[in-house]
Lab assay of single mutants.
Amino acid sequence: KKVTINGVEIKFNNPEEAVKFALELAKRLNLRIEFHGDQIKIE
């Protein structure tokens, strides 16, 4: 399963991993996060 985070394609074994990764990243950098299907936007 491929997920695009800020235009960067990252391959994950499952979608939950991708979501956890994105949330952790957003929390660490104190950023806002948006989900659009397989696209995750962090700003």
Score class of each variant (00 low, 15 high):
Lys1Phe: 15
Lys1Trp: 15
Lys1Val: 15
Lys1Asp: 07
Lys1Tyr: 15
Lys1Ala: 14
Lys1Cys: 15
Lys1Arg: 11
Lys1Ile: 15
Lys1Pro: 13
Lys1Leu: 15
Lys1Ser: 14
Lys2Cys: 14
Lys2Glu: 06
Lys2Tyr: 14
Lys2His: 12
Lys2Leu: 14
Lys2Phe: 13
Lys2Ser: 14
Lys2Val: 15
Lys2Trp: 14
Lys2Asp: 04
Lys2Gly: 07
Val3Leu: 07
Val3Ile: 09
Val3Glu: 02
Val3Phe: 06
Val3Gly: 02
Val3Asp: 02
Val3Lys: 01
Val3Arg: 00
Val3Ala: 01
Thr4His: 06
Thr4Gln: 06
Thr4Tyr: 15
Thr4Trp: 14
Thr4Gly: 01
Thr4Arg: 03
Ile5His: 04
Ile5Leu: 09
Ile5Asp: 00
Ile5Tyr: 13
Ile5Lys: 00
Ile5Cys: 04
Ile5Met: 05
Asn6Val: 07
Asn6Trp: 15
Asn6Lys: 04
Asn6Glu: 03
Asn6Pro: 02
Asn6Thr: 03
Asn6His: 10
Asn6Asp: 08
Asn6Met: 11
Asn6Arg: 05
Gly7Trp: 05
Gly7Phe: 04
Gly7Asn: 05
Gly7Ala: 03
Gly7His: 03
Gly7Asp: 04
Gly7Arg: 02
Gly7Val: 05
Gly7Met: 04
Val8Phe: 12
Val8Trp: 10
Val8Leu: 10
Val8Ala: 05
Val8Met: 11
Val8Gly: 02
Val8Lys: 08
Glu9Phe: 06
Glu9Arg: 03
Glu9Gln: 09
Glu9Trp: 07
Glu9Asn: 05
Glu9Ala: 07
Glu9Pro: 06
Glu9Ser: 09
Glu9His: 08
Glu9Tyr: 06
Glu9Leu: 11
Glu9Met: 08
Glu9Cys: 09
Ile10Ser: 02
Ile10Glu: 01
Ile10Pro: 00
Ile10His: 12
Ile10Ala: 03
Ile10Arg: 03
Ile10Trp: 10
Ile10Phe: 13
Ile10Asp: 00
Ile10Tyr: 14
Lys11Phe: 15
Lys11Asn: 13
Lys11Tyr: 15
Lys11Ser: 14
Lys11Asp: 08
Lys11Cys: 14
Lys11Pro: 09
Lys11Gly: 08
Lys11Trp: 15
Phe12Tyr: 04
Phe12Leu: 04
Phe12Thr: 03
Phe12Val: 03
Phe12His: 02
Phe12Ala: 02
Phe12Met: 04
Phe12Pro: 01
Phe12Glu: 00
Phe12Gly: 02
Asn13Val: 10
Asn13His: 11
Asn13Pro: 11
Asn13Thr: 12
Asn13Cys: 10
Asn13Arg: 12
Asn13Ala: 14
Asn13Trp: 07
Asn13Gln: 12
Asn13Glu: 12
Asn14Cys: 08
Asn14Arg: 10
Asn14Glu: 05
Asn14Ile: 08
Asn14Gly: 06
Asn14Leu: 09
Asn14Gln: 05
Asn14Lys: 08
Asn14Ala: 06
Pro15Gly: 11
Pro15Lys: 09
Pro15Ser: 13
Pro15His: 14
Pro15Asn: 10
Pro15Asp: 11
Pro15Gln: 09
Pro15Trp: 15
Pro15Arg: 12
Glu16Gln: 12
Glu16Gly: 09
Glu16Leu: 11
Glu16Ser: 11
Glu16His: 10
Glu16Trp: 13
Glu16Tyr: 12
Glu16Asn: 09
Glu16Met: 12
Glu16Asp: 11
Glu17Ala: 12
Glu17Met: 08
Glu17Gln: 10
Glu17Phe: 08
Glu17Thr: 07
Glu17Tyr: 08
Glu17Asp: 13
Glu17Gly: 05
Glu17Val: 07
Glu17Ile: 06
Glu17Cys: 15
Ala18Phe: 09
Ala18Lys: 01
Ala18Gly: 05
Ala18Pro: 01
Ala18Thr: 04
Ala18Glu: 01
Ala18Met: 06
Ala18Leu: 08
Ala18His: 01
Ala18Asp: 01
Ala18Ser: 04
Ala18Tyr: 06
Val19Gln: 04
Val19Asn: 03
Val19Cys: 12
Val19Thr: 07
Val19His: 07
Val19Glu: 06
Val19Met: 14
Val19Lys: 06
Val19Leu: 14
Lys20Met: 09
Lys20His: 08
Lys20Thr: 07
Lys20Asn: 07
Lys20Val: 06
Lys20Gln: 10
Lys20Ser: 08
Lys20Tyr: 09
Phe21Glu: 02
Phe21Met: 04
Phe21Tyr: 10
Phe21Asn: 02
Phe21Gly: 01
Phe21Ile: 05
Phe21Cys: 09
Phe21Arg: 03
Phe21Leu: 04
Phe21Ser: 02
Phe21Asp: 00
Phe21Pro: 00
Ala22Asp: 00
Ala22Glu: 00
Ala22Pro: 00
Ala22Ser: 02
Ala22Phe: 11
Ala22Gln: 00
Ala22Ile: 15
Ala22Lys: 01
Ala22Gly: 02
Ala22Trp: 08
Ala22Leu: 14
Ala22Tyr: 08
Ala22Cys: 04
Ala22His: 01
Leu23Pro: 00
Leu23Gln: 08
Leu23Tyr: 10
Leu23Trp: 07
Leu23Asp: 04
Leu23Arg: 06
Leu23Gly: 02
Leu23Val: 10
Glu24Ser: 07
Glu24Trp: 12
Glu24Thr: 06
Glu24Leu: 07
Glu24Gln: 07
Glu24Arg: 07
Glu24Lys: 05
Glu24Asp: 10
Leu25Gln: 04
Leu25Tyr: 13
Leu25Thr: 05
Leu25Val: 09
Leu25Ala: 05
Leu25Met: 09
Leu25Pro: 00
Leu25Gly: 00
Leu25Phe: 08
Leu25Arg: 00
Ala26Ile: 06
Ala26Tyr: 04
Ala26Cys: 10
Ala26Gly: 06
Ala26Trp: 03
Ala26Asn: 02
Ala26Asp: 02
Ala26Pro: 01
Ala26Leu: 07
Ala26Met: 06
Lys27Ala: 14
Lys27Pro: 02
Lys27Ile: 10
Lys27Tyr: 12
Lys27Asp: 12
Lys27Glu: 14
Lys27Gln: 12
Lys27Ser: 13
Arg28Gln: 10
Arg28Asp: 08
Arg28Asn: 07
Arg28Met: 11
Arg28Leu: 12
Arg28Ala: 11
Arg28Lys: 12
Arg28Ile: 12
Arg28Glu: 11
Arg28Gly: 05
Leu29Asn: 06
Leu29Pro: 07
Leu29Trp: 10
Leu29Thr: 03
Leu29Ala: 04
Leu29Val: 04
Leu29Glu: 07
Leu29Tyr: 13
Leu29Lys: 01
Asn30Ile: 04
Asn30His: 08
Asn30Ala: 04
Asn30Phe: 04
Asn30Gln: 06
Asn30Glu: 07
Asn30Thr: 04
Asn30Tyr: 04
Asn30Asp: 06
Asn30Met: 04
Asn30Trp: 07
Asn30Leu: 05
Asn30Arg: 03
Leu31Glu: 01
Leu31Asp: 00
Leu31His: 02
Leu31Met: 13
Leu31Arg: 01
Arg32Gly: 04
Arg32Ser: 09
Arg32Phe: 08
Arg32Ala: 08
Arg32Met: 08
Arg32Ile: 11
Arg32Pro: 06
Arg32Gln: 08
Ile33Lys: 00
Ile33Met: 03
Ile33Leu: 10
Ile33Gly: 00
Ile33His: 00
Ile33Gln: 00
Ile33Asp: 00
Ile33Ser: 00
Ile33Asn: 00
Ile33Tyr: 04
Glu34Lys: 06
Glu34Asp: 07
Glu34Gln: 07
Glu34Gly: 03
Glu34His: 07
Glu34Ala: 04
Glu34Ile: 10
Glu34Asn: 05
Glu34Cys: 05
Glu34Met: 05
Glu34Leu: 05
Glu34Phe: 10
Phe35Tyr: 10
Phe35Met: 07
Phe35Val: 08
Phe35Leu: 06
Phe35Asp: 02
Phe35Arg: 02
Phe35Trp: 13
Phe35Pro: 00
Phe35Asn: 01
Phe35Gln: 03
Phe35His: 04
Phe35Glu: 03
His36Asp: 14
His36Glu: 12
His36Asn: 11
His36Met: 11
His36Pro: 02
His36Arg: 10
His36Phe: 12
His36Thr: 13
His36Val: 15
Gly37Asp: 12
Gly37Arg: 08
Gly37Tyr: 10
Gly37Ile: 08
Gly37His: 09
Gly37Asn: 09
Gly37Pro: 12
Gly37Val: 09
Gly37Cys: 01
Asp38Phe: 07
Asp38Glu: 08
Asp38Thr: 06
Asp38Asn: 10
Asp38Ile: 05
Asp38His: 07
Asp38Cys: 05
Asp38Gly: 07
Gln39Ile: 15
Gln39Thr: 15
Gln39Arg: 08
Gln39Cys: 09
Gln39Asp: 13
Gln39Gly: 11
Gln39His: 14
Gln39Leu: 15
Gln39Pro: 02
Gln39Phe: 14
Gln39Lys: 09
Ile40Gly: 00
Ile40Thr: 01
Ile40Asp: 01
Ile40His: 01
Ile40Asn: 01
Ile40Gln: 01
Ile40Ser: 01
Ile40Lys: 01
Ile40Leu: 04
Lys41Pro: 01
Lys41Phe: 15
Lys41Tyr: 14
Lys41Leu: 14
Lys41Asn: 12
Lys41Ser: 10
Ile42Thr: 01
Ile42Arg: 01
Ile42Val: 08
Ile42Glu: 00
Ile42Ser: 01
Ile42Asn: 01
Ile42Asp: 00
Ile42Phe: 06
Glu43Cys: 14
Glu43Met: 14
Glu43His: 14
Glu43Gly: 13
Glu43Phe: 15
Glu43Gln: 12
